[in-house]
């Protein structure tokens, strides 16, 4: 449902520190069907892996969205530096792509 509750006069946003208590966070990966890879679906809080898988099933596969689930402790995920994207992911080698090469039409599909 929906929900942009308008601001009231004098409303102040609470300070949020991201302090983590309670159940740890798990990242959920779901395989939609045999032959496909597991894809990130979201996350769940759970006390252990078994419960995380159970919750992931309830939260992310209520309509046949998957045939297999992985859960990984969120704290175990390591990510590339988001600010380094220029150096890391720049595509400056067009000759790696098939469209770089001109093949005469007479040759047909290649």
């Amino acid at each position: 449902m929906s929900y942009d509750v308008p601001r009231m006069a004098g409303e102040v946003d609470p300070e949020l520190g991201g302090r983590r208590t309670g159940y740890p966070l798990w990242e959920v990966f779901v395989r939609a069907d045999r032959g496909l890879t597991h894809v990130h679906a979201g996350s769940v809080h759970a006390p252990d892996a078994e419960t995380a898988i159970q919750s992931a099933r309830d939260v992310y596969t209520r309509r046949n969205e998957g045939v297999s689930i992985w859960v990984v402790p969120s704290s175990a995920i390591r990510a590339s530096d988001p600010d380094a994207k220029g150096d890391w992911f720049d595509d400056d080698k067009p000759y790696r792509h098939p469209t770089f090469y001109e093949i005469p039409e007479e040759v047909g599909h290649m």
């Binding site: 949020l16 991201g18 302090r19 983590r20 208590t21 309670g22 996350s43």
Partner: peptide
Amino acid sequence: ETLGVARDE
């Protein structure tokens, strides 16, 4: 939570 807040908060 991806914005740095915790569920409990």
